[in-house]
Structures are given as C-alpha cells and as structure tokens.
Amino acid sequence: MPTRSLYDDLASLYAPVAVVVVILVFGFVAYALARSRRRGPADAGLAPGEPENNVAEGTYVAVLGLVTAGLVTASFLSFDKVGAATSRASGAAVRVNVDAAKWRWRFVYPAAGVSSVAGLVVPADRPIRFVARSADVLHDFWVPDVRFQRQVWPDRPTRWTLSFPRGVHDGVCAWFCGLQHDQMRFIVRAVGDAEFRRWLAARSGAGRG
C-alpha cells in the first residue's frame, strides 16, 4: 500500500478524535464559566462544591485508558503496514542509491550506471528501493506528496522502499544541514514504464550526468 494512503487512513481516525476532544474541552470550559457567572453577588461566602469526585474521575480515567488503547492499537497496526511496505527489499522495479551531501542530492541508478543531481525519475506506481548515505552531516529525504521522510546518515546506510503516483513531486531536505539547507531540494518525476526506460537509456548513452 502506498505510504500516502496509510497516512491518510490513520489520520482519518486521529483527526476526528482530536476535533471531538477539542470541542468537548472548549464546551465544558465555556459551560463552567457561563453557569458560574449566573450566580449573583448575593452568594457571599464560600462556594459549595465537592473538592473531589473519585467515582466520576475514576470512570473518566477508564474511558481515557480505552481511548489511549485504541489510539495505540491503531498506531501500531498502521506502523506495521508502513514497515511492511517500506522495508520490502525484493521485487523492486528500480534500485536508487541516494548520495546526500552539503547541499545537493545525487541519485545513482547502479544497474544502468546513471546518476542525476536533484532530479529523481522513477516509473510511477512501482516500488523503488532506496539505499541512502550521507557524505557529511545528517540530512533527511522528504517527499511531502507521499507522506514519507527518512534521515540519511553519514556512518551507516538507510534503506527504504517507496512508490510514487504519476506526476511531479517536490522533495526537500528535512534535517538542518548547514548554510544552504534551504536550497537542498529535489524533484521527483514519476512517469510511465516505457518513458522511464527511454530516459534511462538516453542518460546512460549520454554518459554520467
């Protein structure tokens, strides 16, 4: 399953829960303020009101526990699906090596002996296997359209599998890496299989890019 739909699935559970919580809290606060104000100045002295209500609060904690358990379960299940989708090493259509360095991205297609700076061309909707390494400091490969990012380390390779829907997608470096961090961007072009093969052939014919 593509990472974007996995994100959207979990968000479609989390977002309504968040909205309901916010509405409830705002509502209870507004109500507490409104009903308190209705008491006139005639109520001198100490306000009544129990200092605690352990039954109500205990029930509430139990409800919170259930909500938490639900969120954690959904989160874990989603995480497992994401892990399964992004760690599949076999069956990838293309393998791309990512060389991150201050302050540009270089994508190498080892099978074809082609490399490209700041432009990643891939066949659309196919799993692409990435092996990423930094030449210097920590970087982070982020393509917002597919809802996925990964830190790229100088002392060890990071591996992931992603698929991209057809079209053009922006990519940025999402970990501050120094002076030109804000310029360290790339473009992902996800094209049809035939077009991808043509592009690859043209690049390798023209020599390394």
Binding site: Y7, A11, A18, V22, S75, S78, P144, Q149, A174, W175
Partner: peptide, 17 residues
C-alpha cells in the same frame, strides 16, 4: 492534541521537522 497526533510514527514520518 497535536503532540499525540505526531506521537504516531506513521503520522510523524510526514509531519516531522
């Protein structure tokens, strides 16, 4: 609430940074 939101790794892997 937005903290709990990004406490889910699936969501954080888009939202982080």
């Amino acid at each position: 609430v937005t903290g709990i939101w990004v406490a889910a790794p699936t969501i954080d892997q888009h939202d982080n940074n």
